[in-house]
């Protein structure tokens, strides 16, 4: 194990230091650790290249001489190997460190620690004088969040059982395009490959484990894809609610307009989700009346009739 590690480090150093492409023969002749038959060396080198690539190191393959299409050569460009965040100010280093520390005890702890070590290796001092006291924290130690983030990182399709609105688990396949933390929940956004449409899934509604299917790098995130554009557009229907003065704090925060009056204030708010608004109106009991649309008014009325009936 240690011999192999040594060889990989030596290979990295040699490929980084060279100004031109090194041929396999040069590599085998000069770099310590390549031993055995020609075939054995060949196999060793193939595995080593794979391993370095798995570590995110880009090995460039190129011809020795454009005039003679002979043996391929290899090198690692220092600019692709090294951290490219350059000319960082102490404030920026602090921001990056804070960002990496936000994952403490959450899904990405190990990765953000690695990132933090690389950032501190720059050797720049941090400067907190420009910053307010901050200790941002990303919450979410859920194994499935980690699984989904790994899939997003490696561009691997995932499969999971998802609790639908009726409370029944259904198998779904997803190419994750992005993540969102909203109202204290994590959401995955991506292409539902069976429905061939963009869908949003709440991570804590996944039953059991997230499983990778197929290979990594099996899809690309469309460059035109924007989470922000998934936000409901202006055509969202509006609800008109009558709300008792002093009541309905949450409804007022969501409202686009509030008209105050003596008995009832008049609120207008977008209906992003009919079920959600129905529940929210019911939560406020006799302090809220739905004026329109009829669909929402009907849903609330029939829910109230049912509540009265079963509790009578």
């Amino acid at each position: 194990m240690s011999r192999k590690n040594e060889r990989l480090v030596n290979l990295t150093i040699a490929l980084l230091a060279t100004k031109r492409y090194l041929t396999k023969n040069e590599i085998f002749r000069n770099i310590e650790g390549y031993e055995g038959s020609a075939e054995a060396k060949e196999r060793m080198f193939e595995r080593d290249k794979d391993d370095l690539r798995k570590l995110g190191i880009q090995i460039e393959v190129g011809g020795l001489d454009p005039l003679f299409d002979d043996e391929a050569g290899y090198r690692i460009r220092p600019e692709s190997y090294a951290l490219s965040l350059r000319d960082l100010t102490p404030t920026q280093v602090t921001l990056l460190s804070l960002a990496a520390q936000a994952w403490q005890d959450a899904a990405f702890t190990d990765l953000s620690q690695q990132a933090l070590r690389k950032l501190t290796s720059i050797g720049l001092d941090t400067d907190t004088s420009q910053l307010p006291v901050m200790a941002p924290k990303l919450v979410g130690a859920d194994e499935n969040l980690r699984g989904a983030l790994d899939a997003l990182t490696s561009l691997t399709t995932i499969e999971f059982d998802y609790l639908n609105i009726q409370g029944v688990a259904q198998k779904r396949q997803l190419q994750v395009y992005g993540v969102q933390a909203r109202k204290s929940h994590w959401y995955l956004i991506g292409l539902d490959t069976e429905k061939n449409a963009i869908r949003i899934f709440r991570v804590d509604r996944i039953q059991g484990e997230v499983v990778s299917i197929g290979k990594s790098q099996s899809y690309l995130i469309p460059p035109s894809f924007e989470i922000a554009e998934l936000e409901p557009a202006i055509e969202t229907p509006l609800a008109v609610l009558q709300v008792r003065p002093g009541a309905g704090y949450q409804l007022r925060r969501m409202a686009t307009t509030v008209e105050t009056a003596d008995d009832w204030d008049l609120l207008e708010m977008p209906i992003f989700d009919l079920d959600f608004i129905t529940s929210l109106v019911l939560w406020h009991g006799e302090d809220v009346i739905v004026s329109s649309p009829p669909q929402l008014r009907g849903a609330v009325k029939s829910a109230l009739e049912k509540l009265v009936k079963i509790h009578g």
């Binding site: 995110g56 692709s80 490219s84 990056l96 960002a99 994952w103 990405f108 720059i122």
Partner: peptide, 15 residues
Amino acid sequence: PRALDRAEALSVFMG
């Protein structure tokens, strides 16, 4: 220092 890999970059990006 080595470049951040995709996962590390994503973790910092989210932070």
